[in-house]
Design a protein around this nucleic acid. Sequence first.
DNA 1: AATTCACTGACAACCGGTTGCCACAATGTG
DNA 2: CACATTGTGGCAACCGGTTGTCAGTGAATT
Lengths: 361, 361
Amino acid sequence: MALPQVSVGRPATIHDIAAVCGVAPSTVSRALSTPERVNIRTRERIQAAAVELNYTPNSQAKALSSGKTGAVGVLVPDITNPFYFDLIRGTQLQLKAAGYTQLLVDTEESDEVEASAIQQLRKSADGLIVGASRLTDEALLAASAAMPLVAINRDVPGVPAVIIDTPAATGQALDHLISLGHTRVAYISGPVSSQSNARRWDALSEAGKERGIDVVRLGPFAPKTQSGAAAADTAVHSGATACIVFNDLIAIGMLQRLRERGVRVPQDMSIVGCDDIFGADFCNPPLTTMSSPIEQAGRVAVTMLLAQLDPLRGGGTRTRSVMPTHLTVRASTTAAPAPMAPPAPRLHKPGPGPLTGGARP
Amino acid sequence: MALPQVSVGRPATIHDIAAVCGVAPSTVSRALSTPERVNIRTRERIQAAAVELNYTPNSQAKALSSGKTGAVGVLVPDITNPFYFDLIRGTQLQLKAAGYTQLLVDTEESDEVEASAIQQLRKSADGLIVGASRLTDEALLAASAAMPLVAINRDVPGVPAVIIDTPAATGQALDHLISLGHTRVAYISGPVSSQSNARRWDALSEAGKERGIDVVRLGPFAPKTQSGAAAADTAVHSGATACIVFNDLIAIGMLQRLRERGVRVPQDMSIVGCDDIFGADFCNPPLTTMSSPIEQAGRVAVTMLLAQLDPLRGGGTRTRSVMPTHLTVRASTTAAPAPMAPPAPRLHKPGPGPLTGGARP
DNA sequence: AATTCACTGACAACCGGTTGCCACAATGTG
DNA sequence: CACATTGTGGCAACCGGTTGTCAGTGAATT
């Protein structure tokens, strides 16, 4: 049994095969890409020679002449962020399944880097998946006009997009907190350039109005665990008994800081994260969070993009897909502290466990 | 001030520029890539036109004629694994800084997929970075002969490599446990196809012999948090009071399972992980682990690869780089339970918190 | 037997650059 | 003033495929 092997020497080309078989290169090309166009006998000779010589088509050359690169660019603002890991995993798996190569680019949260990456990728990719674009609506629309593109978490009319509907879960999260007796709720804001952040806040403050709860907005904070310290301090100072946090990264950072400060979570302060990233289930305490099907969003984005690339198979080309989210309740939320008592730390010894006590309206 | 923008319409080529400037395409090519070869006046006319037309060179065409693709393939067994996130981040950052594009490929822990990916990438990348290769030594050597390549955590004579020296930290970890009074230590094994796993075990069992401690080997287990449950059960059954675990993923899974079973960490069982991945510092309890400079390893690998690609600048081409590691002690290790008492679960209620009690020799 | 037609393979242009070589002009040298 | 030298730009081949077009062959049709 042959072990997986990599051939040595100069890679074979169709010219080599043509020479071996005594035919023209064009015939070789057809034998491999349009087999029915070539007589079965020569075809089989050619195919045998191709296997023999370990022929692999040169994707550059193929791209040059056919215009198709077989690659899809995936742009994310920050590969450092676990949220995008899940997204990248989803796109990678689905692209690979479809025979495409993924070109991963980190746009460093910069609209300029993003624009130049898109410009560059216009030639070297068949399509683009743009996560949480920092471009203006106009620029994104222009990019979408220039080449097949699917945006993720970016809602611009005319641009195909996959939207993770965290704003919807926002109402669930607030209801959850209200039912636990919380009346002073803070929203820990993410970066201002993030449209997701804006949409989440809009939905949350709207939900607050409907329910007669005043939600205060704190921040903005960078979407990193390190920002959690500042966020936690601000939250404590605000007097809120519960926080809904832009994302799990900041939330996890807050958890650590609150512990350092002796503020018990969830007894003194309830925390709701967003995204349900890797780690949200095993941090301490496990985080109540709005679960997003991130990986699935990546897959759906690829499916939508491929439908654009190949309109024949694509069936009805959907241009917008909204992914549902839901609240996952773990141990970082519980009943609000007694209404009139200050939210200051009390006994400062680990409590008997989470989820004690019921709702105190 | 112009906003970042993407041009519309057909991308400009050197032929367009040549037409505008009334020169030959070859002159345009030279004006842009070998400026001193062209008269300054025409050069400037051409450069102005290039900017004007928003010219971006077609990387496919450039690759075809020059043989350089400006891309580097990065192969990892499983993008799902946070360990590789750090690696990918390191390579991405460094490649980007050097003007290269990263082609990310998931080889699905399969030697066949890996070999075919390498074969494919021979044409479309200038070099390769192969994380934790599953190939045989011979196949990897052959691949390395066929194209510039740097392996990570794979030690094959003749193949340039970056080795993260976790075996060294293994001794430190064992000393740490011994000083805490542990005498029954288990090694939770990773996948058999992983050379890192073999090297870690060899170093650990050797260190055990030197110190007169018998280390038992349990497993193998897949490197996923889910495997932690089985690993935890096996470990408890083995009677060990401390485990050194193949990687943090499994270790974190064990933490969860042990909690479910009422086995307290670290009082009843100490756990040492490996890699110090994202999450190791905020899981419950925070994990004592062997910290690896993973991101830096990725960067070093890129540097070594680029030195191979461009021997002029590379200076002394190092072919092997060993990255030091160290033990990071957090809260998942403490003194061994009383020697003769069975390690069975006791009170089965959450303990007062980590880090109680001192060493009991 | 003459005509038509499907089948098959070769030729050549093209994708967008790079690069070796040559021609021509301007300048320097004897 | 003749000749060598240097600076510039163009021509054309090439990288490795794809694809439109055409010619030759043999079989089917009339």
